[in-house]
Amino acid sequence: MDSSQRQLNRSYLLRGLTDGIPIGLVYLAVSFSIGLSARTIGMTGIQGFFMSLTTIASAGEYAGLQVMASNGTMLEMIILTVVTDIRYVLMGCAFSQRFAPNVSLLNRIGTGALITDEIFALQISKSGYIKPFYSYGAALVAVPLWAIGTYLGIIVGNIIPEFLVSALSVSLYGMFIGIIVPPARDNKAIAICIGASFILSWAAEKFLSMLSTGTRIVILIVVIASAISLLFPVADEPAKEAAQNE
């Protein structure tokens, strides 16, 4: 690695550290509530800390806690985890197309292993190639807070006032809106894509409530993204198009 690349990596790491702070604060609040659930099944604070540190997935951890609570088999744990987190496969596929040609194997694995909804969102909000060190920076701040939140939820129980939890819980979705809406202004297909997603997501919750949230999300992603791809196939240089939408 030459020195200019190293310098670039350092600047991405720093940017990740900064952008990871708001995510980390949201994580602290969300993982705190995971800690509250973990507490009810008799998990210790240390176990909760390592569960969140090694899994880093909200829906996945909730699902896992359900398996633990019902004393399910390890196979159930594996299947439910895969189903709940299958969106990471789609995110990983999206990432795979946006790595620089010279990215190392280790950086591929590292970036993949740190895919969360929020870090994925950060990466795709930047144009051009995936920047592994941007993920590392964000994760370095956000993941420890995710683990600490879980630990605190188990150890101290419910101390955050309810109105604060309510307000904090929308921050994540506000961030998502801040990512997907700006490009929709200049790209009709993305706007239609978002509108359809909102409507169908609401309909799915209403009419497919027998399916788990994770399964519903996967079905919605596959159906909507397929339909929009057939209706509005992207030009040959989607990366360039995305960059112009920044």
């Binding site: 999206a94 969102a121 979705y173 909102f198 999300i217 909507i224 791809s229 989607p238």
Partner: peptide, 22 residues
Amino acid sequence: RFIKSFLFYVPYVTLAVMTFPT
């Protein structure tokens, strides 16, 4: 082209369906 388009739209759909109606 279809798969390329699909992967281009996946992030938008993913974040949108997670946002609404939650």
